[in-house]
Amino acid sequence: MSTLETPPPVKMTRLDLMTGFMLVGLFGFGGIAASAYHVIVERRKWLSPKEYASVLGLGQVLPGANLINMTTIIGDRFHGAVGAALALSGLISAPLFILVALAELHDRYAELPDVRAATLAAGAGAVGLTFGTGAKLARNILNSPTAVAFCALTFASIGVMRWPMLQTILVLAPFAAAAGFWRREK
């Protein structure tokens, strides 16, 4: 079941797994990736930096949240499907409570000018976060005319035309793969 060539280097009970990921969730203010690395590699030493990178790489190519995928995979490697479920519930439960508390607090005081300004600023800041991430990736990834073309097509379909994401991806991804394949064959 596990694809880890060597047995897990550490003893980890199911409870450890759950509490560990609870810590990841709680420390994850503003960028959970850093807190995941901190807990999994540095603090609890469940994975070596190399193993962590490989699990993260797999999590990133799969659909869905990178960290959710990574949590699922680590849970599975140590304790199978049950481990995955425990790790996920550990990761999500505490942030969900904080989230709802924040939302209720916001709604109660939404009319206050300070809260309104803070929310608007946080929204604009979050846009900047997404844009900054996209720009950073673009610099590394858009290194050929084909890459730029597929990026632009995706941006126009989703951002400008507002076409449904499911259909857009199901159409664009095979074309992108075919283009990549054709270039390699040439």
Partner: peptide, 14 residues
């Protein structure tokens, strides 16, 4: 093949 599409999606999100 997918990374350029991912960049397009993230920029569209922004």
């Amino acid at each position: 093949a997918l990374p350029p599409i991912v960049v397009g999606l993230i920029l569209a999100s922004a």
